Every structure is written in structure tokens, then in C-alpha cells.
Simulated assay, not measured.
Amino acid sequence: MNEFDLIRQYFTRPTPRADLGIGDDAALLSISAGNQLAVSTDMLVAGRHFFPDADPERLGHKCLAVNLSDLAAMGAKPSWFTLSIALPEVNEEWLAAFSRGIFALANEHQVELVGGDTTRGPLTIAIQIAGEVPRGQAMLRSGAKTDDDIWVSGPLGGAAAAVMHRSGRVTLPQDVFKQCDLRLDLPQPRVAFGQAIAHLAHAALDISDGLAGDLRHICNRSHCGAVVFVDQVPPAEQLIHLPAELALEAKLAGGDDYELCFTAPVSARNKLQKIAAEQGMAISRIGQIVATTQPSIQFLDTQNQALALTLGGFDHFRT
């Protein structure tokens, strides 16, 4: 099987919403009047972003999910993506499973594969995703305002617990590990929720590298501070099987959750809760945006006392 046979067999699907899809030097796309094009890209490298023995069908899901999550954080509707993949060899069984995973999620969110590239090399997957958002309505990291509530969707730390188990830092009961592994391998991008709250939220991002590190991006871009009530940050239920210190690390600094962290005015509380309930989700109000001279995050305990935490997010060049 040569490169073009591989593309034709495993990655070519109809693209009715694109003017031109796979098969030429570039795709041709048209966006609706009054909208902006939102574009994001993520690269996943074996041994860095996923374990080398990762199930290929789950890996197909995850590599698209992390990109969908970026558009969810902007309140954008995803439409198209490209896939570039380096493979150490042509393994048809692996490719069949990988493409099943990626297209199952693509079909769920009605997003089309319109191009990409293949080559031989260490297993590396790069996806670029594009979608539409009404002009001027994208949720930005720079939009947080003083006295905004800080919210997160879903519980945090389950994926981090799976990584801790896989790397030998803890040993979880097998059934608990399998639950955490699902969180790690099959994140659920909050696409519909992101679009639904875009008119209410002031700032947003997705939690990919840990709450502590990612919320700091909002603080930096919005020139503000954040106060986070640690006990209000919802932990994944499996964290009860971790030592207290590691459980705290998992929910505050663990990556791969791909939940949304967003800020919104106090007046939006009831509407946000209603939207979440309509979508069968739980959202948690975890803190407040405050005015500061330097961007910072302060973590408080149940007595409103500051905790001396030095947790940060994942950094590819420091970790």
C-alpha cells in the first residue's frame, strides 16, 4: 500500500460542506456571512502526549477531541479539519481502528476531513481544525472582568490519576484505573456547551494542561487576578483512591481533562446553570476574578485562608 492508497482507503470521506476536499493541493472552504473563521491546531507525539501502546481507536478519538475542545472554548461551531500523520510503518489493522475512532467523533460533531499529509517517521499526529463563530462573539482569554465568577465544567483530575497510575506514581484498583483511563483516552469536548454560553461568558479556555496553569493564561491575558476556593473545585470521584496530596495535584494541576474554564458576571449564574442542566452537565463555580497589580492566582481553603501551593500546569519544555 502506497501513501495515496492509504489516504484513499482510510481517510477519504465525502465533504458536502466544503467547496473542495481531499485530492488537490489545498481545500476550498466558504464561511457564512457575518462569521469569523476560528482555526486551531494540536500535535500529539507518541511517548509525549500519549503512551506508545495507546489503543488506536481511542487515539483517533482523542486527537480530534483535543482540537474540538479548542473551538469549544471559543464558542465556535467546528466544520472542517486536516490531518497530518507520521507513521513508522503501514499497519492496516492500526489504521482501520484509528480511522474508526476519528470518524466516529467527526460524525458526532458533523466536522469534515478536508486534507492533510502522510509520511514515514516516529508516530506523530497533527490536526488543524476550523470552524465558524459570529463576528465579535468569540470567547477570548483576554475578556475576564473584575468580580466575574470563575466556573469549570465537569469534575477534574480523572485523566491525571490515570497518568499517575501508568507512570508508577500510584497503584489504583483495576476497575478505578479503567474509569480514569477512559477520561484520559476519550475526553468529551464541550462543543455544544461552549456555543450555548458564548453570549454570557466573558472569557474561556479549555483545561488541557491543568487548571492552575490554564487559569493563569486568563489572568495574564486579562491583566487580573483569580481567587480559587480549592474545596469548590470538583474532583473526579476516583480521586478518593489517591493520597490527599496527589489528589490535590490531580484536580488542580493535572492535564488532559479538556473541560472548560470560563468567567462570567454574577448576573449570569442562573442562566448558566439552566444551560448546563439542559445539556445534562454539572458546572461548578470555583472562584472570582479580582483586580491586582500583577496577574496571580490565590488558592483559599474552607476558612478562606491562603494555601501555599506552587502547582503549575504542564509545560512541554520543563516537564
Results as ranks from 00 to 15, higher is better:
Leu242Pro: 04
Phe262Asp: 03
Gln238Asp: 08
Ala250Pro: 11
Asp257Phe: 09
Glu259Met: 06
Pro265Asn: 01
Ala253Ser: 14
Glu245Thr: 15
Leu252Trp: 00
His241Tyr: 13
Glu259Thr: 12
Cys261Ile: 06
Leu239Gln: 06
Ile240Leu: 10
Glu249Ser: 13
Ile240Thr: 13
Asp231Gly: 15
Ser267Glu: 09
Ala250Lys: 10
Leu239Lys: 06
Gln238His: 03
Arg269His: 10
Leu246Gly: 02
Ala236Leu: 00
Pro265Phe: 00
Tyr258Lys: 07
Glu259Phe: 05
Asp257Glu: 09
Ser267Gln: 07
Glu259Val: 08
Asp231Gln: 15
Leu248Gly: 11
Lys271Arg: 14
Pro243Met: 07
Pro235Ile: 03
Asn270Ser: 15
Ala253His: 07
Asp257Arg: 06
Val266Gln: 07
Asp256Gly: 02
Arg269Pro: 05
Phe262Gly: 05
Asn270Leu: 15
Gln238Lys: 04
Ala236Arg: 01
Thr263Gly: 02
Glu245His: 15
Ala264Tyr: 04
Cys261Thr: 07
Ala250Thr: 10
Ala268Thr: 02
Thr263Lys: 02
Tyr258Met: 05
Gly255Arg: 07
Tyr258Ile: 00
Thr263Ser: 05
Ala247Lys: 09
Asp231Thr: 15
Pro235Phe: 11
Val233Asp: 12
Leu260Glu: 03
Ala236Lys: 02
Glu237Asn: 13
Val266Cys: 05
Asp256Phe: 08
Cys261Trp: 01
Asp257Asn: 13
Asp231Leu: 14
Gln238Ser: 10
Ser267Trp: 00
Ala268Leu: 00
Val266Trp: 01
Gln232Thr: 14
Val233Gln: 13
Ala236Asn: 07
Ala244Trp: 06
Cys261Gly: 06
Lys271Pro: 11
Glu249Ala: 12
Leu252Met: 02
Asp256Val: 01
His241Ser: 09
Asp257Thr: 11
Leu248Arg: 15
Lys271Asn: 14
Val266Ile: 03
Cys261Gln: 03
Glu237Tyr: 12
Glu259Leu: 06
Ala268Met: 00
Val266Arg: 06
Asp257Pro: 07
Pro243Glu: 12
Leu246Asn: 01
Gly254Glu: 08
Pro265Glu: 04
Leu248Lys: 12
Ile240His: 09
Ala250Tyr: 12
Pro265Tyr: 00
Leu252Cys: 04
Leu252Thr: 03
Cys261Ser: 04
Lys271Gly: 10
Gln238Met: 07
Glu259Tyr: 06
Ala264Met: 01
Glu237Leu: 09
Gly255Leu: 01
Ala247Val: 08
His241Ile: 02
Pro265Trp: 00
Val233Trp: 11
Gln232Ala: 15
Glu249Pro: 08
Glu249Cys: 09
Ala236Ile: 01
Phe262Glu: 02
Ala250His: 11
Thr263Met: 00
Pro265His: 01
Gln238Phe: 00
Gly255Phe: 02
Ala268Asn: 04
Glu237Lys: 14
Ala268Phe: 01
Leu242Lys: 04
Gly255Asn: 07
Ala247Arg: 10
Leu239Val: 07
Leu260Pro: 02
Lys251Asn: 06
Gly254Gln: 09
Lys271Phe: 10
Gly255Tyr: 06
Ala268Arg: 02
Pro265Val: 05
Glu259Gln: 15
Ser267Met: 03
Glu245Arg: 14
Pro234Gly: 08
Val233Phe: 11
Glu249Met: 12
Leu248Cys: 14
Ala244Thr: 13
Ala264Thr: 03
Leu252Asp: 05
Tyr258Ser: 07
Leu260Cys: 02
Gly254Asp: 07
His241Trp: 10
Leu246Pro: 03
Pro243Phe: 06
Ala268Trp: 00
Arg269Lys: 10
Glu237Phe: 12
